[in-house]
Design a protein around this nucleic acid. Structure first.
Lengths: 101, 101
DNA sequence: AATATGGTTTCTCTAAAGGACAACAATTAT
DNA sequence: ATAATTGTTGTCCTTTAGAGAAACCATATT
C-alpha cells in the first residue's frame, strides 16, 4: 500500500514558513486576505485537500513540479490561464475571479 | 457641464460584439462562467459602473488606454498583479480570487 | 462639414516573467 | 547507511507583458 501524505507539510507549517508566525504583520495580512494575492497559499491548500504531490499535480497539467513549487511560494506569478489549467485539469476545480467595487 | 457616458457602449453590446448573441455556444459559456476567464468583461463592467473612460482609468493607473482596451477585449492577458493595480488604484475596488474544489 | 470624444487596432521595442530542466536538500522508510 | 519520495532552488531560453505613440473608426455635438 502506497502511503500518502508522507512528507507533505501542513498548511500551517507552510504559512509559517512563507509568511511567519501568527501575530506578525505579514502573516496577519495574509490571514485577513489583504495585501497582494497569495495565490500560492490557495493553490497549496487546494492541492493538500486533494492529497496530491507537486509532481502528481504537475504531470496532470503538463507542467513541472519545480514550477508548481515556485507558484506556491510566490516566487513566480503564474498566468491566469495557467492557474486555470492547473486548477481545472489538475485539481478538478474551478478558478474564480471577481471585482468588488 | 461635461457630459459623461457619451459613447460608452453598454455591457450587452460589448458582450455581443466579442462573444456573439445569446444562444451561441461561446456566449452561453461566457454567461455560465465557463471557458477561459473573461476578465475583460469584468473589467469593462466595473469601469462602466464607475463611469470612467478607458483613458481616465489608464491615467489613474499609469498605463495607456490602448492597453486597457486590449485587456477588456482579451487581446492581452494582464498579470494578476497588474489587474490588481488597475482595480485598486483605478477603480478603488478589490480583485478577488479563489479556488473552488 | 468639421470637431471632439471614446474606443479599437497596429507597430515597435525592451525589460521582465513564464516555464522547463537538472541538481540539490530534507524527510522518511528499508 | 542508503535509497526513495517530496519539495526547493539555480540556470537557461523563450515568450510576452506592457509602454509608447500613432492612426483609425464610430458616434455625438456645433
Amino acid at each position: 500500500m502506497k502511503t500518502k501524505n508522507n512528507n507533505l507539510i501542513t498548511l500551517e507549517e507552510f504559512k509559517e514558513k512563507n509568511y511567519g508566525k501568527r501575530g506578525t504583520k505579514q502573516r496577519d495580512e495574509l490571514e485577513a486576505g489583504y495585501e497582494n494575492f497569495k495565490i500560492g497559499v490557495l493553490l497549496h491548500e487546494a492541492r493538500l485537500e486533494k492529497g496530491l504531490t507537486q509532481e502528481e499535480l504537475a504531470s496532470k497539467t503538463g507542467t513541472t513540479k519545480s514550477y508548481i513549487s515556485k507558484i506556491e511560494n510566490n516566487i513566480k506569478e503564474a498566468r491566469i490561464s495557467t492557474l486555470q489549467k492547473i486548477v481545472e485539469l489538475g485539481l478538478g476545480g474551478k478558478l474564480e475571479l471577481s471585482i468588488k467595487l
